[in-house]
Structures are given as structure tokens and as C-alpha cells.
Design a protein around this nucleic acid. Sequence first.
DNA 1: AATTTAGTTCTTTTAGTTCTAAACTAAAAG
DNA 2: CTTTTAGTTTAGAACTAAAAGAACTAAATT
Lengths: 157, 157
Amino acid sequence: MKNLNESKLKFIEETGSLMEKKGFSPIVSRILSFLLIADTEEKSFYEIQESLNASKSAVSNGISFLLDKNFIKAITNSGDRKRYFRLNIETWIEVLKSITEEYKGYRMAIDKALELRSEKFTESNSQLTKIRDLYQLFETKLPVILSEWETKNSSQA
Amino acid sequence: MKNLNESKLKFIEETGSLMEKKGFSPIVSRILSFLLIADTEEKSFYEIQESLNASKSAVSNGISFLLDKNFIKAITNSGDRKRYFRLNIETWIEVLKSITEEYKGYRMAIDKALELRSEKFTESNSQLTKIRDLYQLFETKLPVILSEWETKNSSQA
DNA sequence: AATTTAGTTCTTTTAGTTCTAAACTAAAAG
DNA sequence: CTTTTAGTTTAGAACTAAAAGAACTAAATT
């Protein structure tokens, strides 16, 4: 790992493993974390490879994945045949907006469970219903928080 | 898979893979999903094993994990040497209450990134700051939602 | 005391992921 | 036309996680 100071290396390690918990592979997590704290916004294939001390194929596959999922975008400059890569922050915002859907999925799973469970389980059914209600609260409140946030942004941006 | 009808099998499959996305292993996810829709609240080791068509060791390790994490509890009845297992719904509520911490982790990672990034990246830094602000909104609003929910429950429970 | 039961622990197998290294390819430069 | 550059693709090695199977153990039953 070259060109990266102590605190940036630490960031890549820590934020990388936070991303791994979210299901990204190690190399993908490290590419994202690296781009997040790199000293220029656009980094070439080779700069990524060298900074992360990874093989060409690992970087190539990681970049392909991130481009496919729109987490990064590629930039080409005339007179330079290299491609440069930078974060696509828009996509992160989209991911945040879709959190409500995730909670909806859990709420629907509990609904289905309550449907399949015996009505005799009065105590636990009541507890489950409460949890269901909390997910539903998230489902209704999160869009409110999001639009509050968007209003704030549009007035200042 | 015995003793389980079509819709319950479907539930185990679907809810199981929802849990796998959250980081649980397949067998652990299926044990939880099974207990969620089983025809009695307490199920023995053998009933779990047979219903899920899994090996003894897989079920033993899965149960150990779930007991250790408090997702299920074991019940013994005198005159019966088997142990019975049932969901520990309290723990699920605790997990829900800790969601705020998760968002706090992301917010702190972005804070660190902003600290390590050049101030020259004005446009992207402003976008990142907005995302940071959304996570912080979650951080402040989720506890409010949770206490609204708890008040509602205490008045009806 | 011997056997059965209920489960645990250890070992092995399987499946799949992640990475490297090397061969390859397409475009641009000389 | 040949060479260089910038990657991609392929092939394979190393590692990891999950599950199966078998051997083991401790308590209860006969």
C-alpha cells in the first residue's frame, strides 16, 4: 500500500469492513473506501491497484462490478487512453431512499408469519404484532424524514 | 421436510433468505423461520432436525449459536429429558432498538471521510455532507419513533 | 451394570469465494 | 506494420464457510 498515510490506511480498513458487513466483497469495499479518501477525485486503474496492493484481475473485476452497479463512474480524457474512476454519489442517495423498502419486506414477512401461526399463541402473537407495528411505523415515518431532508437540500442547493 | 405444508415451506424459504441477507447462516435462518411458523411454540431438537431435513451437527451448532445470541431459549420439562426451543422475541425488540447505532456508525464513517478529504472537492463534499446529514436525521428521529411506539405499547399492554 | 437417549464435538467433505498469475485483446502510438 | 498501453479474460491456487457423518459423552432408563 503506497502513497497512503496511516490514518487513510486505517480508514480503508475500518470503513472497508463496515461495507463488507453490508455484503460487498473485500476488494470492492476497499476500492470504494479508497476513492472516498483519495487525494484526487478521479483515480486510474493503476493508481487503485498500486494503492491497494492488489492484482490487476481483482481490481478489474471489482471495478466492473462497481460500474455495473453504478457505484462508480468511468471518465476518459482525450489524449489519455487511461480511464479514470470516481465515486457516483447519486447512487448512494438512491440506496438510502430504498431503505423503506427493506423495512417493508420485514413487515410483510411478519404479516405472513402471523397469518400462518396458530391464534392460540396469544402472548407471542401480540408481541409479534407489536414488532410488525414498529416496522410499519418505520415504513410511514421514513418517507417523511426523507422528504424533510430533500426540502432542506433543495432550499440550500 | 416433513409435517410442513406448501405455504409454510415457502415461508421458511423466503424469510430464511431474508435473514441470510442480514448475515445469518442458512441453517440458522431456517431454524428461526421454522420456529416462527411451527404448529407449537416449543419444538424439540429432533422436530427441528426432521422438519428441516438437516444433520444433527448442523442443528446442534445452529441451536448453540441462537442460544448464545439469545434469539431462542431452551425449555426443559421434568420427566422429559429432551430440551425444547422457542423464539425469544424480547431479543428481536432489542435488535430493533439498536438500529440507531448502525446508522451512527455510517454517519461517523462519513465524518471521518470528510475530515480526510481535500476541501477542494467542493461539489462532492457538499453531496457527502448531505448524506451525512440524512444519517444524522435518522439518528435523531429513530429514537423518537421508538419512544412513540413504546408509549403506544405500554398503554395497551 | 448395561443400554438407550439426547445431544455435542471432532473430522471430513463440499461448495463457493477471492485472489493471483499469465495469456490474451483491442486500441492507440510510433 | 510493429510496439506499447490498458486493461480483460481465463485458469488455477488458496482459503473459508457450511454442512454431513461419525465418534464420543453424560444423564436417564431398564
